[in-house]
Design a protein around this nucleic acid. Structure first.
Lengths: 254, 254
DNA sequence: GAGTGGTCTAGACCACGCA
DNA sequence: GCGTGGTCTAGACCACTCT
């Protein structure tokens, strides 16, 4: 029987099967890589070392590294390009929009919202925001209230709250860019990699009606989004309301 | 140089790289397996031959068969159980509900709709139904109109249309079961494996209002679902309308 | 041509389920 | 104890990108 050279090095846990806490090697490798991204050791758009060198570094086979990287790629955390290398995913204007903005025209065209100037304001977090964003009592948030336009028509009203501790001096960025997630990532190292959205049909209130030029009581689609970072922590709470005339929110179920 | 024993048998295309029409072996194997499920050669809940025997049959390595099966498992088309085997996925009451029914109570609990008796009626397809379901002019559909109850409260109104040609004598199934997709699969060999949903906030019309015990004009969430079978063909069109008081439609973005 | 990821193979051993 | 899928390794060759 040959002695398998199971990960002679590194902080990977001993691979003694039948022990509690045992996890497959490739999962441990995945988590190690994830922590390197999360900590900023590997930064967005940077290329990773090659599979061969990572395998050598960790004392595992290339196949195990590959399985870990494939799993990260499946979650959109890294991007693989044949012949070039593996890269930490970066939010571009395009990619962020398509992944998290599900509003489409009835024609099937993807809707592209723009926003005029909006300002971030610092204030105490509400009880609801503290509960959802996991904040201490008396914590502050930055709050952004804005109306976004599609084809120059006011279509979408957004109320956004993010922890002030995570995004220091967010109010100094004037004007707030159209695609917030690229700002979170480039300026604060916070990558939004997932979200949970709760949808409801509600009546437009007075502010909605004024901003969207509808009458109060008109049906609007309300989307409550909780955005999650690499460590699955909730880092943004966003309430959107919009009319769906000539539009729809698209969901693909698989 | 050794002569690799690349798939000596089978209908797999010759593996000569740099030729147009070249596809990785594991993708060809996946498609072969998919066609066996789609054609009914492998039926829901049945166990597949072991990886070893499939590899031997096709003249490929076990690793290639594994990669094909893993990809089918990722799409919920087969289910793998360590120590037991690989099985064609079957819609149970439970699995079908959780995959395609996204309505939750505000508490986070999954909502469980029930329906009292409903009947399927045969009629000419509308122009819209023909367009979406890809039907010839003058084709028939079975149409189901029903109201579903959550905690004995009328909550959800559904208008369903399916091609009559695909589901002969659907109207003879009385009463229509609560979970239609299990019926489609067990009685007609049609497996629903995906869906596209378009969501809009609209005003309740008179029928909605009467069925849901709301006033006309109340905001309701409208969901237009196109359900797809194994071959990605649209086989059901379903329009749902419901109030979202104390409830929400849940979407997870990744 | 060198270096990267992508495909394919072969074989060892582990974990699980069942008889 | 046997058969199944799951993990891990090792090595060959292909496809793509850049120099």
């Amino acid at each position: 029987m040959q002695e398998p050279p199971y990960h002679k090095s590194m902080e990977l846990t001993e691979r003694h099967p039948n022990r509690p806490g045992f996890r497959p090697l490739y999962q441990q490798v995945r988590e190690l890589f994830l922590s390197r991204i999360s900590s900023g050791a590997w930064r967005p758009a940077e290329s990773l070392p090659s599979e061969q060198s990572l395998a050598a570094e960790l004392g595992v086979s290339q196949g195990t590294v590959r399985k870990a990287l494939d799993s990260l790629a499946a979650d959109n955390l890294v991007e693989r390009r044949q012949g070039k290398g593996t890269f930490v995913s970066q939010h571009t204007q395009e990619s962020a929009k398509f992944r998290f903005f599900k509003l489409y025209h009835s024609t099937g065209e993807h809707a592209l919202p723009m926003c005029k100037d909006a300002k971030a304001k610092r204030r105490r977090a509400t009880a609801n925001e503290r509960a959802i964003l996991n904040l201490a009592s008396r914590a502050d948030v930055f709050s952004i209230e804005r109306t976004r336009f599609i084809n120059d028509k006011p279509t979408l009203r957004e109320l956004i709250a993010v922890p002030a501790a995570l995004f220091p001096n967010l109010d100094l960025h004037q004007p707030i860019p159209n695609t917030l997630y690229t700002l979170y990532q480039s300026e604060y190292g916070v990558s939004i990699v997932g979200a949970i959205e709760k949808l409801r049909a509600v009546e437009a209130n007075k502010e909605d009606a004024r901003a969207l030029k509808k009458s109060p009581g008109a049906p609007v689609l309300e989307v409550e989004r909780i955005a999650l970072d690499l460590d699955n922590r909730p880092v943004e709470l966003r309430l959107s309301r919009f009319c769906t005339e000539g539009m729809h929110y698209l969901v693909e179920l698989k």
